[in-house]
Design a protein around this nucleic acid. Structure first.
Lengths: 162, 162
DNA sequence: CTGTTTTCGGATATAATATGTCCTTAATTC
DNA sequence: GAATTAAGGACATATTATATCCGAAAACAG
C-alpha cells in the first residue's frame, strides 16, 4: 500500500506555489526543473490539482499554475486525494457472504465488521491529513529552511516564469 | 493506495481461527472453501501469518493452522503488517535536495517537512489498528451474527478438518 | 496576422506489483 | 506405505504506476 510518487510531487509544488508573489504563475517546466522531475509526468499531477480546483491555470508565455485559494484554506487531504483519488484503502469484497451456512439471500443489516474497523483506521489517516493546512507546511518550511536559500529559490523559479 | 486483498482474507481467517476449539487446526483448504478463495493463493497469506508468529501450523491430515496467541493478545496491525509489510505508505524521495539554490552537500538537520506530516498520518492509521484486538472483532461478530449460523459455520469447517 | 509558449487530454509504451497456478519437498497421521 | 498437509520456489497473467509523445486550443509578443 504505497502512495503514488505524484502525491509527494504535488505537495512540494503546492508549497512553492504558496510562496508565489501575487498574480504570478509557475509553469510545469519550472516546477519540474526545480525538483528534478519528468515534466510530462508531473504535468498529470498538476492537472489533477486543477481538476480539484486547488490551482488555477493560464496559457501562453508567463502562464502556468497558481493557487486557487489561500494556503490556509487548503489542507493536505485535498491535495492527496486530488492525485491519489478518494477511494478507501480497504475494499470489502464481502467474502463472509460465501459462507455456505448462511441462508440464501441472507442480508446483513450492517457492513462487514472487519471492513468497519479498517475504514475507521482509514478515517483516522484522513482526519490527520485534513487537519494540516498548506499554510502550516509553509510556516514550518520558513522556520527550517535558511531565509537566503528560500529567497533565492523563488528568484530562480520566477526567472524561469518569464 | 489499495491494500492487498490478502489483508481482508487474513483478517477473516483469523476471526475463524479465534473461534476454534482448543487443540484443533484448520487447513488452508477448509478456510479457502468457507470464503470462496483460491486455495493456493490464500496459502501465501497464511504463510505470512505463520512467519509473523501469529499462527502455528502442523502437518499431515487434521493438520493446518491455529492461533499462536490468545485473540486478546493479537491486534489488527499485526495481522495487516504480516501480509502487507511494515513499510510506510509515504516514501520520501527527498526531491527538495534537487533545488539548485541549495549549497552542495547541504544536509538538512531534520527529515523533509512534507514527509513528517505524511508519516504522522500513517502513524494515526497504525495506532487505530493497533488499538483493535482480534478479540474485539470476535466480540462484535458474536453479537451481530445469529448464534445458529455462527455455530453451524464451525461445524461445517471442522468437518473438513477431519 | 504569425510564431511561440502554455495547459489539456488522449494514445501509447514500459516497469513494477498484485494476483493466481503449478510443482517439489518434508513432515505428520493413519 | 499411502494420504494429507504446510512451505516455498518457479512461473504466468492482470492490473497499476510510471513515463513519453502528440495534437488541439488558448494566450501572448512581435
Amino acid at each position: 500500500m504505497i502512495l503514488k510518487s505524484q502525491v509527494e510531487w504535488a505537495l512540494h509544488c503546492c508549497a512553492i506555489l504558496a510562496g508565489l508573489p501575487e498574480g504570478r504563475y509557475l509553469s510545469t517546466k519550472a516546477l519540474a526543473e526545480l525538483h528534478g522531475l519528468p515534466k510530462e509526468y508531473l504535468s498529470k499531477a498538476l492537472q489533477n490539482l486543477s481538476q480539484a480546483s486547488l490551482v488555477e491555470t493560464t496559457l501562453g508565455p508567463s502562464g502556468g499554475y497558481r493557487l486557487a485559494k489561500t494556503p490556509s484554506d487548503i489542507n493536505f487531504l485535498e491535495i492527496v486525494e486530488a492525485v491519489e483519488g478518494k477511494a478507501r484503502s480497504f475494499t470489502c469484497t464481502n467474502i463472509r457472504a460465501n459462507n455456505p451456512c448462511r441462508p440464501e439471500g441472507y442480508c446483513d443489516s450492517k457492513p462487514c465488521a472487519v471492513a468497519r474497523i479498517m475504514w475507521e483506521a482509514d478515517e483516522a489517516w484522513r482526519d490527520t491529513l485534513r487537519r494540516v493546512r498548506l499554510s502550516d507546511l509553509v510556516g514550518t518550511l520558513s522556520e527550517e529552511v535558511p531565509a537566503d536559500i528560500w529567497r533565492s529559490t523563488f528568484e530562480w523559479v520566477l526567472k524561469r516564469a518569464g
